[in-house]
């Protein structure tokens, strides 16, 4: 969207993507300049380290079963944080893994309650994380699968063949992040209009607010205000 646009068509122009900062910087984030003179705070976003065994509770049981069924998964795929088990899944194993998650009697995660994306622009080669929340009604457990894909090649296999309820969720993730779910039956935009340009939930997509004007004063839109 870098071509010049006729002013009459200005209303049709979508917000321009801006480059995100490599790390959270200073007290005032990426907004206008630091007014306090204090800018020494560095706040890098670090990926989480996998948890060591034993994971505790039923987590070991599920982790062992998953490793038995999908040996390629490896021992460092599991992370237990705040009482929730996260499995880091390579994209190529995803379809195989969810099939086991649903069908294996020891796992029996019948329900994929939610699929959502997270954009980490700093994690080069794994910018997009797609997070699947599985629910086992039989065992009353929840499991989180996290798959990643690079921004240059945003492709992940679709889990719709295993979990039909993930259909709209994957469409939403495509709409909001631009992650292409291969083998999805009908991957189209769902929330935004069909002709929308860009994927709004990406971190480099601006919020698109307008300045708020008062008599004699102006407040910038939320993404351009200073932040902490």
């Amino acid at each position: 969207m870098s071509q010049t646009v006729d002013p009459a068509d200005r209303a049709l122009v979508r917000p321009q993507p801006v480059q995100p900062p490599a790390e959270r910087r200073g007290m005032w984030g990426s907004g206008p300049g630091d007014v306090s003179g204090y800018g020494g705070l560095r706040h890098p976003v670090v990926p989480r380290q996998p948890s060591a065994r034993p994971l505790g509770g039923w987590f070991d049981e599920v982790a062992d079963r998953l490793t038995t069924l999908v040996p390629e998964l490896g021992p460092d795929a599991f992370l237990v944080d705040r009482g929730e088990l996260t499995v880091a899944v390579p994209g190529r194993l995803l379809v195989q893994l969810v099939r086991h998650c649903r069908d294996d009697a020891w796992l029996r995660f019948e329900n994929c309650v939610s699929v959502s994306g997270v954009h980490y622009p700093d994690q080069v080669g794994a910018e997009f994380h797609v997070v699947y929340h599985l629910l086992s009604i039989t065992h009353n457990r929840r499991l989180r699968l996290e798959a990643t894909c690079p921004e240059s090649d945003p492709h992940l296999p679709s889990v719709v063949r295993t979990y039909p309820m993930a259909d709209w969720h994957e469409r939403e993730t495509w709409d909001m992040f631009g992650v292409v779910f291969d083998d999805h039956p009908h991957l189209t935009r769902i929330l935004m209009p069909d002709d929308w340009v860009g994927h709004p939930q990406r971190k480099d997509y601006p919020l698109g607010g307008v300045p708020i004007e008062f008599k004699g004063a102006e407040v910038p839109p939320p993404d351009q205000r200073r932040s902490y």
Binding site: R14, P15, M192, P200, Y205, P206, L207, G208, G209, V210, I212, P221, P222
Partner: peptide, 12 residues
């Protein structure tokens, strides 16, 4: 005026 939703999705 767009109210709370000063963003890409809502007509202001």
């Amino acid at each position: 005026s767009g109210g709370l939703f000063n963003n890409y999705a809502v007509v202001q």
